[in-house]
Amino acid sequence: MRKSLFHGLLFTSPAILGFLIFTLGPMIASLVLSFTDYSVFKEQTVFIGIDNYVRMFSGADDYFYPSLAATFYFVALRVPAVIVLSFLIALLLNMNIKGRAFFRTVVYLPSIVPAVASAMIWMWLLNPDLGLVNSILNTFGLPGSNWLYGENTVVPSVVLTSLWGIGGTVIIFLAGLSGIPRQYYEAIDVDGGGWLSKLRHITIPLVSPTIFFNAIMTIIGSIQVFNEAYILTQGGPNNKSLFYVFYLWRTGFRDAEMGYASALAWVLFIVILFFTFIVFRTSNSWVHYEGEGRS
């Protein structure tokens, strides 16, 4: 293989330029903005040091902590729900049964529905007075719920609507599961172990890298939830679903406080880095890579 720095840079230059113009540049600019009170409504922009960050953490901002709380609650509910449910569905789809391709399509299909349309469908399904879900509950003699309109139910309801789109995660699990050699299970059959011991001693350890990947992606995605808050709830009721990125958008684009919104964005970045770091640190103890002697 011959070397050519010129050609290497030539082919990658659009991507490198794109990175400099659309990622690195804006990143530095937003860090600088986060130390100012920049607003499109103000004539002069003043450098205010760390005041934006002080305003956030000191409690002077009435919405910062509620939005953090709403987001963490959402992440804490959604990540385990997505991982467990999609893993279970993948186990079902991995069984040696007829119609696998059909069931796989069924599970994946909702994940391609545009967020706005999916939101409309769920608003209608979860409508407290006329929605299908409450009317089914009533048929079974169960009380309905206010779902998206209740202070205590809004975040679980948003999680519920988002579970409709877990198809992508299921398919990734399925790929991990189908990579497990059949002989491993046969060994357990010989030892007389049942379904549960197969799951515990073979399936879960061997797909743990896939669980790890899905967990990271789901955490990063869930922290940045925006569409649902914008379309379904507008942050309400009583700021119970004021998810962080929605609050950031509102601060930057509706209230035009772009300096402060930039500071919010950097805090978000650090939160994401922190969570990713934690998951990576703990992964040594539970993620099993074949051929590395770790368990």
């Binding site: 804006p26 600019a29 903005l33 940045q224 930057g252 964005a265 950097w266």
Partner: peptide, 14 residues
């Protein structure tokens, strides 16, 4: 790893 929110505002202003 970078959340889109970080580049959102400067990109918009640009």
């Amino acid at each position: 790893m970078l959340p889109t929110a970080v580049t959102l505002i400067p990109s918009f202003l640009g």
